[in-house]
Computed example of a mutant assay.
Amino acid sequence: MDGIVDNEKRALRAELRERRQQRSAAALDTAAAGVREQLDRLVAEHAVRSMSCFLSTTTEPGTREFIAAAVARGIRVLLPITRADGLLDWAVAEQEGATAEGMFGMPEPVGELLSPDAVNDVDLLVIPAAAVDRSGMRLGWGRGYFDKTIGSMEKCPPVYAVIFDSELLDEVPSEVHDQPVTGVVTPTRTLVLHH
């Protein structure tokens, strides 16, 4: 059974990746502005003082404008750094923070490394996703970092996945280890998904 789900996930990820690569620069700029507006509102609603986010790649809904603005407002933003053991270290985002290519070619912050436990005291987790379904199940990119992080937290805060509007699906293939999210942030809206 797991092999079938694995193949379904792989096929869906490939299709979503291809769709993302076809977006124009203008569409990506518009999406980034929308994501910033939605995340600004979400952070205000939850009175967030400390949170996690991620440095978006060139094909993801942009988070970098939001991160810069949040740091400027005094919000402590933790950014993930991949480790070979499948866990995430964290670094505090800085106004003019340097980045480097991480283990899988993704942008990661350069700075003092904080342990995987550093994320335990945040008010909000904002994570990447390939797609999310209406029940809150998230399809990641297949490495399991965020599923492990969410699954290991004693007191998990609200978790929102950042996706494009078209990536909110009726259903995504899932397995036992996959962790649901509280909701999604898209360029046009923020939705709470009950699971």
Rank of each mutant, 00 (worst) to 15 (best):
G3N: 07
K9E: 04
K9D: 02
A11L: 13
R13L: 10
A14T: 11
R20Y: 10
Q21R: 06
R23K: 11
A27N: 02
D29M: 04
V35T: 07
E37I: 00
E37M: 06
E37H: 10
L42T: 07
L42E: 02
V43H: 12
A44T: 11
A44M: 11
H46A: 10
H46M: 05
S50F: 04
M51A: 14
S52F: 12
L55G: 08
L55Q: 03
E60F: 02
T63I: 03
I67H: 03
V71C: 06
V71E: 11
R73N: 09
G74K: 01
G74L: 00
L78A: 09
L78F: 12
A84D: 15
G86A: 04
G86D: 10
L88W: 09
L88V: 05
D89E: 03
A91Y: 10
Q95P: 01
Q95D: 05
F104Q: 12
M106P: 01
E108L: 14
P109Y: 15
G111S: 10
D123V: 05
V126K: 11
V126S: 14
A131Y: 08
L139Y: 02
G144E: 09
T149A: 09
G151Y: 12
P158K: 05
I163T: 02
S166I: 01
P173E: 14
E175P: 00
V185T: 05
P187W: 13
V192P: 01
H194G: 03
